Simulated assay, not measured.
Amino acid sequence: MQWPSVKYKKFAKYAGVAALALNVCAAYGLDDKRLWLPAKYNTYFLKLKDAALAAEALDRCVKVLSGTIDLEQGVPDHPMYRILCQQKSGRNYNEMVDGLTMETLTTQIIIELEPTPEELEIIRIAEEARIAMAREVRMAEQWQICNDALMSKVTLMAGVSVLTLVRPEPVEFTEELVSYLIDFDAKDMYGAALKYRSSCTSLVSGEVSVGIRRRVD
């Protein structure tokens, strides 16, 4: 068996390097020929390539069609790059890339960070305040509903005087209902005082029930 000559070995070495370079370019999926810069900005080429790779890394950009420096939006010490991308739909769009941070500006990448203990405490306090406010609003609404329902029920009574003027704590408060007790006085046909206690239950369905019984102070 005859070994290759030194000249052939050198050729094989260079061919291997060239093949490796082609494999690297294929891995990136980016053709340098698609990137263009004015002659005086050639020193920005590597940064332009980084910008193109940043755009190509986006799910939205399936292929980089071209890329260049945007002289209108950038300045020499803070360049901006305009990368023309093709989307899965086949439509093209320009992805602007910050030349310093390599942040894609057209398509924002949302990074979800774990909240700190302090932030979790703020969230907890805010949620408790929201629940308390919702409870207060609901109690006020149901209190008014119960008052209106009671007044409708005692329209035929004489000398009605409601004693529970300030909203009390509900007797029962659940997701389905709110119940209140309302004390009031009335008079019989002879003008004698009558003492009553009303029990009102208001359901989330809108149904309201009012019961009245004699009150013993």
Rank of each mutant, 00 (worst) to 15 (best):
A186S: 11
L177P: 02
I212M: 09
G206A: 00
C200L: 01
L181S: 13
L194Q: 10
V210E: 13
E176H: 03
G206S: 04
P170E: 09
Y196T: 10
Y196K: 09
D183G: 10
G211M: 15
I182V: 13
V208T: 05
L194H: 01
R214D: 14
V171G: 15
C200A: 04
S202D: 06
R213F: 12
R213P: 05
S179Y: 02
L181G: 12
F173W: 11
P170F: 03
A193G: 07
D188Q: 08
E175K: 01
V178L: 14
D188I: 11
F173I: 06
L177W: 02
F173S: 09
V208D: 07
S198V: 01
V171Y: 08
V178Y: 03
C200I: 12
I182Q: 02
T174S: 14
R214K: 12
E169D: 06
R197Y: 11
D185S: 11
T201C: 04
E207K: 13
S179R: 01
V178E: 00
A186T: 02
T174I: 12
D188S: 05
T201N: 02
Y180S: 05
A192G: 11
A193I: 11
A192M: 14
T174Y: 15
A186C: 00
R197T: 15
T174A: 14
S198Y: 03
I182L: 09
T201A: 09
P170T: 05
S179V: 01
R213M: 14
K195I: 07
R215T: 09
E176P: 01
G191A: 03
V204F: 05
V204G: 02
R214Q: 12
Y196R: 09
S179E: 10
G206Q: 04
K195T: 10
K195D: 15
V171I: 12
S199Q: 06
V208L: 05
G206N: 04
S202Y: 08
P170N: 04
F173C: 02
E207N: 10
F184V: 04
V204Q: 15
V204P: 00
C200N: 14
S179Q: 10
S199G: 11
S205D: 03
L181I: 15
S202W: 04
E172W: 04
S209L: 07
V208S: 05
R197V: 12
K187A: 06
S179I: 04
K195L: 08
D185Y: 13
G211W: 09
L181T: 07
F184G: 04
L203R: 02
S209E: 05
V210K: 08
R214Y: 14
Y190N: 08
D185I: 00
S209A: 13
V204D: 01
D183T: 03
L194T: 06
D188M: 01
A192P: 05
R214F: 14
R215D: 12
G191R: 00
D183P: 08
V204I: 00
